[in-house]
């Protein structure tokens, strides 16, 4: 523990122990009632709201000295949000960090679930901007709470109806509402609906933290998670025409990268760790030569 001196000004993982206890109690309650939004006394964190203050507080409360942390931002390990949160926990908790999904015990994520299936000894922590799925249809908090309590979820389908009426299909592509264990309707945070099926019967514990809105909710391991839909307009995930341009993976979520101002573009894996692993094991995509790397 040679970093001990540097840590003198902070408690382990930044938050004080009383705060962590309070958050852990909220997490336990959330796990006991899957999909239910538990209010908690969210703290000011050294980052602006919207940058993952909720996720950071949840991570800080479940993190132990032996954990290995991975942080994802839009699927990538090397974007600003991911790099700074990873550095934050390295500094205040001195924990091991990784970019490899398989090696991590806690994964804090913004907007994606890793492509690699998660295991029972992993915890996935989501950063949530707006936890209330009914919010844009019903602005009153008192009313949305009552609707959750009485299981009045007709309004959620009004939103999907509007989608079909306007676009001919359900055009909601992210924050696609799900029903957890046949009871609570939940916002899976702004992950693409492509990731919704991964939440169903997931082996890992999934925790959701909304810092500004002061809510924590959870999906315990092996829990039923169903995306809402209509009988004649069933739930579908996005499909891509071409495989990843770097690693030739298909059936994964791809990001569009604009290459020039003449319409040039490429589609690459949004999960950077997944893509790198595939390239290391010899998969070659259509444009992988152009990135300047030598392909073995």
């Amino acid at each position: 523990m040679k970093h001990q001196q540097d840590l003198a000004t902070y408690n382990f993982a930044y938050l004080d122990e009383q705060t962590k206890r309070m958050i852990r109690r909220a997490i336990l309650k959330a796990i006991a009632i899957p999909g239910y939004q538990v209010p908690f006394a969210s703290r000011e964190m050294p980052m602006p709201y919207g940058w993952g203050t909720g996720g950071v507080q949840v991570t800080a409360s479940v993190l132990g000295p032996d954990d290995t942390l991975k942080v994802i931002d839009q699927g990538a390990d090397d974007t600003t949000n991911a790099v700074s949160i990873r550095a934050f926990f390295q500094k205040v908790a001195n924990v091991a960090v990784t970019t490899q999904t398989g090696k991590a015990t806690i994964i804090q994520t913004r907007h994606r679930i890793p492509e690699e299936p998660l295991s029972e000894n992993q915890v996935l922590v989501y950063q949530v901007p707006i936890p209330e799925p009914l919010r844009f249809l019903e602005p009153r908090e008192t009313e949305t709470r009552k609707m959750h309590a009485l299981e009045e979820y007709g309004l959620m389908h009004v939103k999907l109806y509007e989608d079909i009426a306007r676009n001919g299909h359900i055009a909601t592509t992210y924050a696609y509402p799900v029903k957890v264990m046949g009871r609570y309707v939940m916002d899976p945070s702004p992950t693409p609906k492509f990731d919704n099926p991964k939440m169903h019967q997931c082996a890992a514990l999934q925790l959701f933290g909304a810092g500004r809105e002061k809510r924590i909710y959870a999906i315990p391991p092996y829990t039923q998670v169903v995306s809402l839909d209509f009988e004649d307009h069933p739930f579908e995930v996005q499909a891509f025409d071409e495989p990843c341009a770097l690693c030739a993976a298909s059936g994964v979520y791809l990001d569009e990268v604009v290459l020039d101002d003449r319409g040039g573009r490429m589609f690459v894996c949004s999960d950077t760790d997944f893509c790198e692993k595939r390239r290391e094991s010899g998969h070659v995509g259509a444009m992988s030569g152009q990135s300047g790397e030598t392909v073995q």
Binding site: E152, G154, L155, H157, V158, Y161, E162, I164, A165, D229, F230, E231, D232, H233
Partner: peptide, 16 residues
């Protein structure tokens, strides 16, 4: 249409 359909969806109609 959604205004009229809301009550139907509230009582469990799931066929668009």
């Amino acid at each position: 249409g959604a205004n009229v359909g809301e009550r139907l969806m509230a009582v469990g109609d799931r066929h668009y």
